[in-house]
Amino acid sequence: MSHSLPVIRLMSEGGDVVVRDGLVLCFYMRHSHRDVADRVWGALEKYRRAIPPHALGWYGSDDGDTLPLDEAGWAHIRHQIVERPWGGEWIVELTELPDKVGGYHVDYDGRKLDEPLFSRDDSATSGLCFSFPTEYLLTHGPEHFRALALDIARELPFSFGYASPALLSHPGVWFCVRQQVQEVLQRYLGLDLPRLGGTSRRMGTQARGAYWLTFMGPPLLAQLGGREAVERQVDLPGVRVEPLDEERILVALDEWPEALDMEKQPVPLPYRELERVLEPFLYDEEAVWLPWETGTLQRWGRRLRR
Results as ranks from 00 to 15, higher is better:
Met1Leu: 12
Met1Gln: 13
Pro6Asn: 13
Glu13Gln: 15
Gly15Cys: 10
Gly15Glu: 00
Val17Tyr: 12
Val24Lys: 05
Leu25Asp: 07
Val36Phe: 03
Asp38Thr: 06
Trp41Thr: 00
Gly42Ser: 15
Leu44Phe: 02
Glu45Thr: 10
Arg48Thr: 10
Arg49Asp: 14
Leu56Phe: 04
Gly60His: 10
Leu67Phe: 04
Leu69Ser: 02
Leu69Gln: 01
Asp70Asn: 15
Ala72Lys: 12
Gly73Ala: 08
Trp86Asn: 04
Val92Asp: 06
Leu94Ala: 06
Asp107Gly: 11
Asp109Asn: 13
Arg111Leu: 11
Lys112Arg: 14
Lys112Tyr: 12
Leu113Tyr: 10
Leu117Gly: 05
Ser123Ala: 13
Ser123Trp: 13
Thr125Ser: 14
Thr125Asp: 11
Thr125Leu: 07
Ser126His: 05
Cys129Pro: 00
Phe132Met: 01
Tyr136Phe: 15
Leu137Asp: 05
Thr139Ala: 08
His140Lys: 05
His144Leu: 01
Phe145Asp: 03
Phe145Leu: 15
Arg146Gln: 02
Arg154Glu: 14
Phe158Lys: 01
Ser159His: 10
Ala163Glu: 04
Ser164Tyr: 04
Gly172Lys: 03
Gln180Leu: 07
Val181Gln: 00
Gln182Ser: 13
Glu183Arg: 14
Glu183Ile: 00
Tyr188Thr: 02
Leu189Tyr: 05
Leu189Asp: 00
Leu191Ser: 07
Leu196Gly: 00
Gly197Ala: 12
Gly197Asp: 12
Thr199Asn: 01
Thr199Leu: 13
Ser200Trp: 05
Trp212Ala: 06
Thr214Tyr: 04
Met216Cys: 09
Met216Asp: 04
Pro218Lys: 12
Ala222Gly: 13
Leu224Glu: 07
Leu224Asn: 04
Gly225Ile: 01
Val234Thr: 05
Leu236Glu: 09
Gly238Arg: 10
Arg240Ser: 09
Glu242Leu: 11
Leu244Ala: 11
Glu246Leu: 05
Arg248Asp: 10
Arg248Cys: 09
Ile249Ser: 01
Leu250Gly: 05
Glu255Asp: 08
Ala259Pro: 08
Leu260Val: 12
Leu260Arg: 08
Lys264Pro: 02
Gln265Leu: 09
Glu273Val: 14
Leu274Ser: 09
Arg276Ser: 14
Glu286Phe: 10
Gln298His: 05
Arg299Leu: 11
Leu304Lys: 09
Leu304Gln: 06
